[in-house]
């Protein structure tokens, strides 16, 4: 069987619970050592993004409406499934140039991070809610509510850990996400999508595009039905542009940047709070 030809994997994007190619048919080649083609990667266009926003918006209310316990179970299920397929993640990261050891470290750290955030779904509300002792005879409380549809521009590196770490705070809090994977190292993003697909994450909750920031950043930041942008990259001039564009509908822009994505500071519920609005409700207390 030594001469058997590999069955090569087709790397698609994940939108609305389905694996799709770019509507344009455009792609970019991903090359490995010695310039050998590793895979052809879909080049998402603004129309792909537009469709993804529609799916994400459609899924948001239901996702937020699930019980916190249920969201936690679904996220934990992601970790379970990643654990079972960790070799595949490691192999992909190696194909993208990591050593076996590095790839293993990143994969395990990613799984741990999913478990960490899965545990927050039914806890962050208690941390970020208040009962406000107002002077008048009213019961007054403030609760976090998801902002809605969040665009995540994941870091180039670490490709898997960065992507998952920047998606999780949004998802935990009931938002839905359109994430742009690392351009240079997108392979594991597809495998992550497959995990999402076969775990119980409803279609549209996490949508993963591949492509180039310069094609998409403007549309990410000007789309009027996007509530927030998490910019997890270093380039400050692009951040500036995104902030300016965000003015159109006052979408919230967060620059999330960690020197070390493995550090404990990434394990941080305040990242969940950043993607929440606070709703204050008043009601009289009387007979």
């Amino acid at each position: 069987m030594a001469d058997r030809l590999d069955i090569q994997k087709t790397y698609k994007m994940y939108v609305g619970g389905a694996f799709i190619r770019s509507e344009s048919g455009h792609y970019y080649p991903l090359t490995g050592k010695g310039g050998k083609l590793t895979a052809n990667i879909c080049l998402a266009t603004r129309k792909d993004f537009r469709d993804a926003v529609t799916k994400a918006r459609g899924a948001q209310e239901k996702w937020a409406g699930r019980s916190a316990y249920n969201r936690g179970q679904i996220l934990y299920r992601i970790a379970e499934m990643m654990e079972g397929r960790k070799d595949q993640f490691i192999a992909e990261l190696v194909r993208e140039g990591l050593t076996k050891k590095q790839a293993e470290k990143e994969t395990l750290a990613t799984i741990d991070r999913v478990v960490y955030f899965a545990g927050w779904t039914d806890k962050y509300t208690q941390l970020f809610s208040t009962v406000n002792p107002v002077q008048s005879s009213h019961f007054n409380f403030s609760l976090p509510e998801p902002m809605g549809v969040v665009v995540v521009m994941a870091p180039e590196k670490p490709s898997l850990l960065g992507l998952v770490s920047s998606i999780l705070p949004a998802i935990v809090g009931g938002n839905t996400v359109i994430a742009l994977a690392s351009t240079g190292a997108p392979l594991s993003a597809l495998t992550f999508s497959e995990i999402l697909h076969s775990s119980d994450v409803p279609g549209g909750v996490i949508n993963i595009l591949t492509g180039k920031t310069e094609d998409l950043a403007e549309h990410f930041s000007t789309h009027m039905d996007v509530n927030a942008v998490v910019y997890a990259r270093e380039d400050e001039s692009m951040l500036h542009q995104i902030q300016e564009n965000a003015t159109g509908n006052l979408k919230r822009v967060y620059h999330v940047w960690y020197k070390d994505w493995y550090s404990d500071e990434v394990d941080n519920p305040y990242a969940i709070a950043d993607l929440q609005e606070t709703k204050t409700t008043w009601h009289p207390v009387g007979i």
Binding site: V134, S142, W282
Partner: peptide, 8 residues
């Protein structure tokens, strides 16, 4: 209704 303790 407004109150200093109540986020707005």
């Amino acid at each position: 209704k407004f109150d200093p303790t109540s986020p707005f």
